[in-house]
Amino acid sequence: MSSPKARFLTALTYAGGLLFLAVFIGPILWFLALAIRPADTAFAMPPQFTFEPTLNAFRHILVDPGVNGPQVVNSLIVAIGAVVLNLPFSVPAAYALSRFKLRGKKHIMLWYLGLLMAPPIAFLIPYFILITRIGLQGSYFSMVLVLQTMTIPFSVWLMKSFIDEVPAELEEAARVDGARWFTIMWRITLPIVRPGIIVTSMFAFVFAWNNAAFPLVLSARSTATLPIGTLGYFATSGVTWNFIAAAAVLAMIPPMIIFLVFDRYVVRGLTFGSVKG
């Protein structure tokens, strides 16, 4: 075994880690508990740590009356739609901004950043008016479209940093090898930045999935997304915390799955030793 000092440091590290976990995981566990405890024990004083778990809240939101079930589907449609619409625009834009000498390139990038930083609320009214005027109000597409104002700038920034990492020599080597630009894009650059595309899609999905502001004004009752449904429980007679918690737990699941499945792409390097050893 190691020296007492090293052991003390190890213990300290674990203690710090546990504290960290408590701060970040604690609220999630508390919400999870809230979702499965009997409604009347939610705010009991003193707090009850033991209770009879029940799936009543989940039954209520998904089955009977099950208001939130279709909203999960709506959320999926909007989030997947946002990813699908996002990629064909952000990837080529990022490529162009990374590779070509464009006039005002810096300004475009800053403008994108500005869009990201501006509070979406500030744009809600103009978007609402625009979408209503063109008769898209209440449609999935209206939400997918307006979400692009946030997802495209973010994706372009992210994708550009990935494409920047691909050495220009690789594309030059492919040109000398006889490949045209489409082949180079399709067989060299895009496959190499595949982790970047996956990460970008992940973020676009989670971004769209979590967004509540746009669906709030753009969705109809039949196209409302899960965050709208969750917000709804604040308004009805008395705040029903266990329904809110159940919906929130439901909302957490897809992003969690996505990060668990794809987390290696987030950290994975890009060029795996093509240029230097």
């Binding site: 020599e169 690789l170 060299i188 190499i192 093509s274």
Partner: peptide
Amino acid sequence: DIAMVFQNYALYPH
């Protein structure tokens, strides 16, 4: 119809 060997080799990493 020329072939080039780059200083960094520029092998396709994938």
